[in-house]
């Protein structure tokens, strides 16, 4: 078994118009910039993007939005140091927003990957983000029912992967990676290093390879925050 794909473009060649795509990362940590830019070059549109944020500056998810490729953003915090791309599209009515509390977003993705169609959480009870959602009492406290969240594709940045798809992450860049890998029909990972099976100590595997479909090696990947600070743009 070898899940390695030779090029970024080949790894995402079957993503089509209207796809729902989970993209890992919290702020710049874990943002798979090379995969996102490969996606932007495909010029497919009508995308639904699931991420904690909604792009920063003129690169990454913001570049997808600037190019008019995103129909809907599903996120918890569509603000950043430079949120122009999303803010302008949203205020112009060109992009839909589904705003989800961060922990509910994470748990909905986890549930999607774990085959759990719905769950109850105390989060957002009594607020406008719970409007229209069923509420039930457990042990005297009200909880809001939330549904699983799944995607056609996940684009994830890992530190080391082996050819079976086992992954490790780098520091806080882990964030949504393990959850999204499990919740997508097809999971595409860019890893800084790809090693042979056995090259990652099984005790250290964070995402088991069963959740990963494709890996591309991107040595010395770009870091979104560093690019933002340098004023980078894409294309």
């Amino acid at each position: 078994m070898d899940k390695t794909i030779a090029s970024l473009s080949a790894a995402i060649s079957d993503i089509g118009d209207g796809a729902t795509i989970m993209i890992g990362g919290f702020g710049g940590a874990g943002a798979p910039i090379e995969l996102i830019h490969a996606l932007a070059e495909r010029r497919i549109g009508d995308l639904t993007i699931i991420n904690n944020n909604a792009g920063n500056g003129r690169i990454g998810i913001a570049a997808l939005i600037d190019a008019g490729l995103v129909r809907k953003m599903v996120c918890s915090f569509p603000r950043s140091s430079d949120p122009r791309a999303f803010t302008e599209s949203y205020l112009a009515g060109d992009i839909e927003l589904e705003l989800i509390p961060q922990g509910t977003l994470a748990e909905r993705i986890r549930a999607g990957g774990a085959g759990i169609p719905a769950f109850y959480t105390p989060t957002a009870y009594g607020t406008e983000l719970a409007e229209g959602k069923p509420v039930e009492e457990f042990d005297g406290r009200p909880y809001v029912r939330e549904r699983w969240l799944k995607a056609d594709f996940a684009l994830i940045k890992a530190e080391t992967g082996d050819t079976h798809g086992n992954l490790t992450y780098r520091k806080a860049a882990r964030n949504f990676g393990p959850l999204m890998c499990a919740a997508a029909q097809t999971t595409v990972v860019q890893a800084s290093t790809i090693v042979e099976p056995g090259g990652i100590d099984p005790e250290h595997v964070i995402t088991p390879g069963i959740f990963v479909d494709r890996l591309v090696e991107v040595t010395n990947p770009q870091q979104e925050e560093a690019l933002i600070r340098a004023g980078a743009t894409f294309p």
Binding site: P78, T87, Y90, L99, P101
Partner: peptide
Amino acid sequence: RGVPAVGGAMD
């Protein structure tokens, strides 16, 4: 008005 953003506060 504006762009709503909630993050983890509700959790």
